[in-house]
Design a protein around this nucleic acid. Structure first.
Lengths: 267, 267
DNA sequence: CAATCATGTTTGTCTTTCTCAAACATTACA
DNA sequence: TGTAATGTTTGAGAAAGACAAACATGATTG
């Protein structure tokens, strides 16, 4: 009844947190109006108004006939992030090739704050669930139910995996999702042995993926690559050896690229 | 000597502006250290520290062994922006096709705040200047020296064009850049007549482009599409009729897609 | 067509929170 | 080991943010 102290801890800029919340609110809601944004925040109209005006001026938000959107500055900044991620430069071409030979979706992902973000995606000619994959890239995804995610988890040390599970939980996205910690650790063990991870309709019903980890120069995992296809097209030999082989090859080539580009003197 | 009034005008949140400046500083400088960031801002170390901590917590900034980078949240948000730009959904496939038939770089751009932003890019097998195009996407570009930019300017009304010129100037990127207002207006006239715009080494020496405007349902220009290739491969008939024809066809198809997807009831 | 309502914008004022210095840590370097 | 460089924390004054309420502007409706 007495903990009215400022509960210190490290200092933060509250206005920046508020701005971030507003951006999140706009992202959550499609094309919100001014009062839609107000509804999602607990701040007065006047305050929200000033924030939106500032964010618009800075290019983080755009107003299109009375409705708010995230601004194009986020596109250019996002582009910078990708270009400065060594994995992107090292992997882009190889991902395109893999999409070309498999004709399916290929993803290149990295871990950030306990989730994974797709840094590059290539769509083979037969790729399905385009809309799902479009939307999926708009937010970081769980690691425990994707091929790339599990491939990476398999090469983290147990403490780190445990921390991630504690933070994120093992949300059941489908009936096949591994939602039990022990089972997940068993699975990670198998992934380590085989060298690749399988996602058997654990993220999305009807879709399977094969993923392999990518190690950086220091030996630590810095990302993963995967092929995703409808279960009907990803079964039998193709599921058990052909695609896994191709994915691991691609991962290997990207690793080599990484080593050589990292030492690129022009950077 | 007396204008010490608050110089009112509409209110803004200063902290958000500061945060924006910090992000810009990090984007400008590759992998800056803490004091690098301080150097670019005029704020005390303590202040910058608090901002960076906040931005990191929010995912807009990441610290990788002592150096700052833009954070992956910008990637996911940027992805949202693209996905919610109708032009992207309407044009993506067509841009891929055009890159496939021409084997060159194809760009899909929109205007924002007097400059253009590439919302999607497809790289044909022979595409050159990969690195330039990578970097180019990290910042909005001038309209007066690109094929897409001029295609769009050609269909704005004169006042709007004049405003843009006043704001942005006619920076000479190469010897061929049109840096004279009257000459630019003449050129825009020709573009309107022909239906497509030409960039003849006006942006980058050795590179030519052909661009066509894309009109939205309301009839207003909402973007443009272009093919870019080295001058040696873009000359003669290919330069004067083949590629222009293909680009205008693509623009036309995208316009049709736009009309049909806009009325998509699922949205 | 007036009147009511919903939506968005501006302003005065009090409170919160930024910001600066300066002190404090921590790490590099000689 | 001492000195410098870099990064982090803190106290307190000054500045800026937040609220509420008033003000516009457009919709909607009786």
């Amino acid at each position: 009844m007495d903990d009215s102290r400022p509960a210190d801890g490290p200092r933060r800029i509250k206005s920046v947190q508020t701005a971030s919340e507003i951006l999140a609110a706009i992202q959550r809601r499609p094309d919100p109006t001014f009062s839609d944004v107000c509804d999602e925040l607990d701040a007065s109209k006047g305050t929200v108004h000033t924030y939106l005006a500032t964010l618009e001026e800075e290019g983080f938000v755009a107003k299109v006939d009375g409705r708010y959107r995230l601004g194009l500055r986020l596109v250019t900044m996002g582009e910078t992030v990708r270009n400065e991620t060594p994995l992107y430069r090292a992997g882009q071409l190889e991902v395109d090739k893999l999409a070309d030979t498999t004709n399916e979706y290929v993803h290149l992902t990295v871990v950030s704050r306990g989730k994974e973000v797709t840094i590059y995606e290539s769509r083979g000619d037969n790729a399905v669930a385009t809309d799902y994959h479009l939307r999926m890239r708009e937010a970081p995804q769980y690691l425990h139910c994707t091929a790339t995610g599990k491939a990476m988890l398999g090469h983290f040390d147990d403490d780190r995996v445990r921390d991630i599970i504690d933070d994120q939980g093992l949300v059941e996205q489908t009936d096949n999702t591994i939602s039990d910690t022990d089972r997940l650790f068993d699975e990670l063990e198998r992934i380590r042995e085989r060298g690749y991870a399988v996602n058997d309709e654990e993220e999305l019903r009807g879709m399977r993926s094969i993923g392999a980890p990518i190690r950086g120069v220091d030996g630590d995992v810095c990302g993963a690559v995967s092929v995703t296809a409808p279960t009907s097209r990803l079964s039998g030999d193709r599921f058990r050896s052909e695609i896994p082989e191709l994915v691991m090859q691609a991962a290997n080539i990207i690793e080599v690229n990484l080593e050589t580009t990292t030492f690129d003197p022009s950077r």
